[in-house]
Nucleic acid binder design. Structure first.
Length: 572
RNA sequence: CGGGGCGUAGCGUAGGUGGCUAGCGCGCCUGCUUUGGGAGCAGGAGGUCCCCAGUUCAAAUCUGGGCGCCCCGACCA
């Protein structure tokens, strides 16, 4: 590619809308432009990266035996009614009508469509295993699109769906995808972790998230550096190292005035206590019945754990009205003392506390020196808290660390959730009709790009991993109007192109500094400078973007040297 | 959806207590000179000051309504 005929609109100043590094740099380097909130144009350079990631994914998916298909983005409401998700999926599901008033949804994911395909085309156990995948647009009317392409409304996703005759085969398919994912993200040059995750509203029995580590990530993962245990914070297990003050003598219960102090910070600040000396009371409605959960002031309630323990279908926090109704006090003053009409569950760490602060179920009042058994009864102590950095690993006992990550891929073992509701059956070897066992596997392409930039950037711009860089080599021809320089630059450009190196030549009539800055901004791994030194001494300067390493080589050695660098940097 | 902020040329912004032709930097166009780290000089183009209504002799500026965008939160008491 000749830069002069490309469209790479680099910017000196970034539009005020961008916050995080990847978003800013994608705009600055001329990769994307915004069309509307959560909707982006990918410009030629940005799309080239897309394409490269797409090809890596395609290669690894095909190698793993998956079959590429193409499904429509507009999907009929009937299919969504079959699984009940027409109602269960919230406003994220973009609904629309055609001219005949028939209802459709823009596909946010394609379980329904692909299951419909499978149930009509797969009839025998001989037809399985099958894994269908596609790489194309999804639409989710996100509650709040943000961070550029990291959370956009329309985005390209690789989604794959496996169909198997039974559980063991389905697990085999899952394992294949898991391994393919590790290859894909490794080849893309990402620093990532595969973590245990919650399956959310896609459903299913177990699931892994592939998180690219980045400080700006929207998700938190808990990782054990000793044994490698890694899980999404929403799902993670961890033992609290909290010792408590079990030995303290019980002091008399005392009602204290805390006017206008609602939050843990306010109350503990006002009473000059530590957050760990307070017990907070979270009020929920579990399938319509009230329930209270107690956790230490500096801990967070793990809703999924409570949900799982209660075994109910719906667990929602009480509304402000419900809080008033059941606790007889405005939000912020609920407490277990005198709380009636509901069961009270407490986190294990609470059992180690004496003389703690808690709400008094009365406006502007709290209790000090509250103690369970004496002042109120707890139905059961159990693990109810979200693990934190410093907790002990439940597998090996070492201290856990907490890391931020960007979810670039997610795999789910779905089981028969969709095949059951959509009657996706086949005839097995024993002559019986059985449900297909499914799995589904997604990758967000734009997130891979954003994550790569979050992990690879400096003050000058992007630093691409070789495998997804839009070009492997940039030839910076200084003063291209000079006939001699032009001759040298064009000759190596043509040679590289002919020999299969992905190369762009900066042939614009720009000052040297300008071209150097642009080359660094768009992050091409290898830069070759053609200037006076080339004309006078026959030397071509190579500079590596990642390390800043610089050296000059003669014409005869140039190609083999560059080829060697490119090969070395491509992770296989 | 709740809270906060912003909306002036392609981008970044000044002006805001009403008053001359809406200013500056970057970018863009023309010419000349330059060409190893975002070149210099000269000339030039480009604006429904987000939209609508109101107040006024007069609105980018004041008032009301709307729209768009960004950030935080979305029942974690």
């Amino acid at each position: 590619m000749r830069w002069s005929s490309a469209l790479i609109p680099t910017l000196k100043e970034v539009p005020a809308e961008a916050e995080i590094a990847s978003h800013k740099l994608m705009i600055k380097a001329g990769l994307i432009r915004k069309v509307a909130s959560g909707l982006y144009n990918f410009l030629p350079l940005g799309f080239k990266i897309y394409y490269k990631i797409e090809n890596i994914i395609r290669e690894e998916m095909d190698k793993a035996g998956a079959l590429e298909i193409l499904m429509p983005i507009m999907t009929p409401a009937e299919l969504w009614h079959e699984t009940g998700r027409w109602n269960l999926y919230g406003k994220e599901l973009m609904r629309l009508k055609d001219r005949a008033d028939r209802e459709f949804a823009l596909g946010p994911t394609h379980e329904e469509v692909v299951t419909d395909l499978a149930r009509t085309e797969i009839k025998s156990y001989r037809d399985m295993p099958k894994n269908f995948y596609q790489i194309r647009n999804k639409f989710r009317d996100e509650i709040r699109p943000r961070f550029g392409v990291m959370r956009s409304r329309e985005f390209v996703m690789k989604d794959a769906y496996s169909f198997d005759r039974n559980e063991p085969c389905a697990e085999e398919s899952y394992k294949k995808m898991f391994e393919a994912y590790i290859k894909i993200f490794s080849r893309c040059g990402l620093n990532f972790r595969a973590v245990e995750a919650d399956s959310g509203n896609i459903g299913g029995s177990f699931s892994h998230e592939f998180m690219a580590l980045a400080a700006s990530g929207e998700d938190t993962l808990i990782n054990c550096p000793a044994c490698g245990y890694a899980a999404d914070r929403e799902k993670a297990e961890g033992a609290s190292p909290f010792c408590g003050n079990e030995k303290e003598v019980l002091k008399p219960l005392e009602k204290v005035s805390t006017p206008g102090q609602h939050t843990v910070e306010q109350v503990t600040g006002f009473l000059n206590k530590k957050a760990s000396e307070l017990v907070k009371t979270l009020l929920y409605m579990a399938d319509g019945k009230p329930v209270a959960a107690l956790v230490k002031g500096d801990d967070e309630l793990h809703e999924i754990k409570l949900h799982r323990f209660l075994g109910v279908t719906e667990l929602v926090m009480m509304t402000a009205q419900q809080v008033e109704e059941f606790s007889k006090a405005p939000v912020g003053f609920a407490g277990p003392v005198g709380l009636t009409g509901m069961k009270i569950f407490a986190d294990n760490a609470v059992s180690k506390l004496r003389n703690f602060v808690t709400g008094a179920n009365e406006k502007d009042m709290h209790y000090a020196n509250a103690n369970f058994d004496r002042d109120f009864k707890i139905n059961k102590f159990l693990d109810l808290r979200v693990p934190k950095e410093g907790d002990l690993c439940v597998k090996c006992g070492s201290a856990l660390v907490s890391l931020k990550g960007i979810v670039v891929g997610h795999t789910y073992k779905l089981g028969t959730k969709y095949s059951k509701s959509m009657k996706a059956e086949f005839l097995d070897e024993d002559g019986k009709r059985k449900l297909m066992v499914m799995g589904c596997y997604g990758i967000g392409l734009a997130r891979v790009i954003a994550a790569a930039i979050e992990q690879g950037n400096d003050a000058s711009g992007i630093i691409w991993p070789m495998a997804i860089s839009p070009y492997q080599v940039i030839i910076t021809a200084l003063n291209y109007k000079d006939e001699k320089i032009k001759l040298f630059a064009d000759s190596i450009y043509e040679e590289f192109k002919a020999k299969g190196v992905e190369v762009i030549i900066d042939d614009r009539d720009m000052s040297a500094g300008f071209k150097f800055k642009d080359a660094e901004l768009i992050g091409i791994p290898v830069r070759i400078t053609v200037g006076n030194k080339t004309v006078n001494e026959g030397l071509f300067e190579i500079k590596l973007r990642k390390t800043g390493e610089e050296f000059a080589v003669k014409r005869e050695e140039l190609f083999s040297k560059v080829k060697e660098i490119v090969q070395r940097e491509l992770v296989k």
